[in-house]
Amino acid sequence: MTQTNKNTTANKDDWLSICQLDDILPNMGCCALVNTADEQAKQIAIFRIISPTGEEQLFAVDNYCPFSHANIISRGIVGDLNNKIVVASPLYKQHFELSSGQCLEDESVFLNSYAVRLNGSTVELALSPLAKQQQKKA
């Protein structure tokens, strides 16, 4: 089980099966195509992070980069900065925190983040953005 989905309140029916865990290379991202309720196709970047102690974590954020207006976030280099796990946008190198989607260089910019979990060997994704859920809770 991943840390990210512990607080998830989404219904079981909301979980979409995306791919096998092995389809995502360790410490890298991939891009998933999902359909939202209003039939819009959406691109979501899913990252698989293995900590130095061997713990697996999955994260999901928008694949669309608000700075470059291109669908490229999944192709960024992942790492940690000031103890936050981040991805660096491959075009203009802004950093986004993977758990919240927050841009570290510009407070007003963030990517939507989504709940993602491992069910057996299958990676599953819940569509309603995490950030919105967190806002509702607050």
Binding site: S51, P52, G76, I77, G79, L81, A88, H95
Partner: peptide, 18 residues
Amino acid sequence: LAKHDSTSGMGLGCDICK
């Protein structure tokens, strides 16, 4: 990382050092 990481082996690296 394991041998020379200054964060004593807890870091993942970043888009500079990688």
